[in-house]
Simulated assay, not measured.
Amino acid sequence: MAATVREVAQLAGVSPSTVSRVFTAPDQVQEATRQRVTDAAKQLGYRPDPAARTLRSGRTESLGLVVPDIANPFFPPIVKAMQARARNHGYTLLVADCDEREADELETIEAIVKKVDGLVLWASTLSDGRLQELAQEIPLVLVNRQVEGIPELHISLTPGINQAAEHLRALGHAGCVFVNCSRPEHLRGKSIRESFDAQGLAVVELGPYEPRFETGLHAAMLAVANGATAILAHNDLVAIGVLHQLAHSGVDVPGQVSVIGIDDTLLAAMSIPALTTIRISPQTVATHAADLIVETINGAAPQIVEVGSRLIPRASTGRAPHSA
């Protein structure tokens, strides 16, 4: 049978209310008394009830993370790393996805907002005004979404995109087709056009589509019909779809068409041929996201933290056909 507060109090020679304070407000108890209570609790195998502790302290010791699509292989490593970082801070992590739909995101937030001390929203679909209202209700961090007065973790693809453009130009490509699956406010297409323009490379944009494997299947032959010698996909999942369809259609990669993804998920290294991609470090993203939300909970001023990216060249890119 589990030990009780009264049993711990009796062994430590204190009142039951002092035992409760040791576990809910330790700074209000003298160090020597705290030590006696924690020693007694350890000896008896006592564990405070998390639900009761939450009711008394008003803290849940949990963080919330809402992502667009948990099935996207980009997110599981981030969730795992963020969970570990949250644990280091003394929190557990609750994760949900919203399938990039505003109604689902609102419903998900409503379901978990009372169960967490702070919330991280990834590429939120909500309006600026609604996000500012939410930030008044709970400590909030946004990933890849900039709203005045709210802390943001910004993943900059610019370094990786610049490297991709340089890589393709060095291989003799005159341009590429970009398979776009971004919402207009994310401006990924604009960033890609600017980087490729700086290298003197033309960009033909297809989409916007849903960021799924099936999109790559659909877009692959459209890109080939546009005369593409290179395809840059919205993410690795779309790029794998492109590779699959090109292989099915007898188009050689990279002999006839080079393919580049974004994210550097496990799929990229395992694909055939191995996928050249723009790497975003899950560990770095997760660490900064967890640290930023904990700092926000503790009253830190809003700030923008940026995480960079870099190109990982693999076997899916090669010299343009006319340069071979």
Score class of each variant (00 low, 15 high):
9 A>P: 08
11 L>H: 12
19 V>K: 02
19 V>H: 15
24 T>W: 01
25 A>H: 14
27 D>I: 01
27 D>A: 07
28 Q>Y: 02
35 Q>R: 15
39 D>V: 12
41 A>I: 10
47 R>P: 07
51 A>T: 14
53 R>P: 01
55 L>N: 07
58 G>P: 11
58 G>V: 10
58 G>T: 09
59 R>E: 08
61 E>S: 11
62 S>I: 06
62 S>M: 09
66 V>N: 03
67 V>E: 02
85 R>A: 12
90 G>V: 03
92 T>A: 13
97 D>M: 01
103 A>R: 05
105 E>C: 02
106 L>D: 01
110 E>A: 15
112 I>S: 03
116 V>L: 12
122 W>C: 11
128 D>C: 07
129 G>P: 00
129 G>L: 07
131 L>Y: 03
135 A>L: 00
141 V>F: 11
155 I>Y: 06
158 T>E: 12
158 T>C: 11
162 N>K: 14
162 N>M: 06
169 R>K: 15
176 C>T: 12
178 F>A: 02
181 C>W: 03
184 P>W: 08
186 H>N: 15
193 R>N: 11
194 E>Q: 13
198 A>M: 02
203 V>G: 06
206 L>H: 14
209 Y>M: 03
212 R>E: 13
218 H>C: 07
222 L>R: 15
225 A>K: 08
227 G>N: 07
228 A>C: 04
229 T>D: 04
242 V>E: 08
242 V>I: 13
248 H>T: 15
251 V>P: 05
262 I>S: 06
266 L>T: 14
281 S>Y: 00
285 V>P: 07
287 T>Q: 15
290 A>K: 05
298 N>S: 10
302 P>V: 11
304 I>L: 10
307 V>C: 08
309 S>V: 03
315 A>P: 04
316 S>C: 10
316 S>V: 01
319 R>E: 07
319 R>D: 06
322 H>W: 15
324 A>V: 08
